[in-house]
């Protein structure tokens, strides 16, 4: 049985339908990557799972319970944490406060503490008194990841883990990924860099125009199939 799954998930922004029956599963300890062009619906999927967008209750199941209609704070308290697209640090909080607030309501069992985050990303310790938004984009992403880890979640959702970051920083963040995975959280990462996604993920979903167009293990997927799923078969 999957840890987390969506069942015919749909999502709307007013009249506009952004997801058309998306089925995604995540097993315990697994790392799943969602790839797809801009506007494919990746962020909408993440926002639906995390409860920012409300849904029909049974369209999302977690630990065999329906959670689709729960509010974001309730979803988080059950152990699903999110690194939102664009980092979204709190500007009036320092780096350290941004980290602490991740564990303020839920402090689950697990390896992640303030010290462990500082060990994972040492630069954050140096900058802990700075305003979160005074940091570079890459450092902000480290704070956002650390903030989500602080609650020791069972599922970590990362929306655009490397988008817009300098190559050295992307390397630092991907170097940290094995240690994050060793912490037992299952992960869904949204990644536009297909090469990176194929390297780290156990399974990949490719989305286009609100639908899953391809899924499989990195080994099983041909370049051509991914290209077709990404840009449409007609290309």
């Amino acid at each position: 049985m999957a840890l987390l799954s969506t069942h015919g998930l749909t999502a709307h922004y007013g009249q506009f339908q952004a997801l058309f029956g998306v089925d995604v599963t995540l097993d315990a300890g697994e790392c799943v990557a969602i790839i797809g062009a801009n506007g494919a619906g990746k962020t909408t999927l993440m926002r639906s799972i995390s409860g920012v967008l409300r849904n029909e209750s049974k369209s999302i199941r977690y630990r065999d319970l329906p959670i689709g209609s729960l509010a974001a704070d309730e979803v988080m308290q059950r152990g699903i944490a999110m690194v939102p697209e664009g980092r979204r640090l709190f500007p009036s909080l320092t780096v350290e406060e941004n980290l602490l607030i991740g564990a303020q309501v839920r402090k689950g069992q697990g390896p992640w503490t303030l010290e462990a985050i500082y060990e994972l990303f040492p630069i954050l310790k140096e900058r802990r008194k700075n305003a979160g938004t005074a940091l570079s984009g890459g450092q902000q992403q480290m704070v956002a990841i650390g903030r989500a880890l602080m609650s020791n979640p069972d599922v970590l959702l990362c929306d655009e883990i490397s988008l817009g970051l300098a190559p050295v920083v992307i390397r630092d963040i991907y170097n940290a990924l094995p240690r994050i995975r060793a912490g037992d959280a299952a992960m869904i990462i949204v990644e536009q860099d297909i090469g990176q996604a194929l390297k780290v993920a156990d399974r990949v979903y490719c989305m286009m125009e609100g639908r899953v167009t391809l899924t499989g293990t990195p080994q099983a997927l041909s370049r051509e199939a991914i290209h077709n799923a990404y840009f449409g078969a007609a290309a």
Binding site: S50, G51, V52, A71, A72, D73, M76, Q77, A81, M82, P84, R88, F90, P91, S92, L93, E97, L100, I101, G102, Q104, V105, R106, R147, S151
Partner: peptide, 23 residues
């Protein structure tokens, strides 16, 4: 205080605060 941190975070960005488990 932790309460004040929640106040500031919610004031900054209520949606992201809810992703921290704050109502």
């Amino acid at each position: 205080t932790a309460l004040g941190r929640a106040f500031r975070a919610t004031s900054d960005d209520a949606t992201t605060a809810s992703l921290m488990g704050i109502r």
